[in-house]
Amino acid sequence: MNPIKVNHLKFSYDLETDVVNDVSFTVEKGSYTTLIGHNGSGKSTIAKLLIGLLEKGSGEILIDDLELTEANLDVIRRKIGIVFQNPDNQFIGATVRDDIAFGLENHQVDPALMDDIINNYAARVDMSKYLDQEPTRLSGGQKQRVAIAGVLAMKPEILILDEATSMLDPEGKSEINALVNALHKEYGMTILSITHDIEEVKKSDHVLIMFDGKIVKDGLPSEIMIDEKEMISLKLDAPFSVKLANALKRRGIVLKETLDTERMVAELCLLRSKK
């Protein structure tokens, strides 16, 4: 059973150009999958299709082997949580407490149970101290943590991050990355992260690259990210380590490892001591 399976998915806003053009991919259970691509490649459209915010043109979307249709939209949305890019535009409640409650109210949770759930998930994202704060008093990173708490409170199996850190400062970014990593490792949550952050991609289990509406690469970061020329041709950037390895290659130093910083450093130190 795969959390997400997409077959020959097509979508177009204007019935002329396909923003998503015959896309097929699988996200495996418990994996940390990253989806990257240039601006306008169709990544965010995929996310909206997966949770049924947009209606597909053709093809099929299977969530836990269940096909996404109008009829079971509600069931599927309980399985997938999504965090969007702009922290301000997804904070619905007047306070942190009310915002976490919003999803619970929608799912008709008994109000008597809500306080415990809210306290529990606020603690999970380390926002217990801010329960009665208004969003204007929170940083971008804190707002995104609240968004994650709101999603977690609905106990989804899959978490989609749609450029959730791209509007945050470095501190907020690392807060969110650490939190998502913990959710992945400790709870075994399936993560699909749409991102521009090459370092995040390097650490992921699986990477999908989109280019002009199509998935053009699908595999392990260690296989895909090491081709500098290809990454550039896909309007992306290669990791610094890969670029450095290539610069060294031009100088006659060929390394086995070109992605993992630590191993590269170890290899270089070994080369140096041999001389």
Binding site: A247, L248, L268, K275
Partner: peptide, 15 residues
Amino acid sequence: YLEDLAEAISKEIKR
């Protein structure tokens, strides 16, 4: 720049 680092590394290794 990246090239500075690559150059420095290669000098150290080839020395």
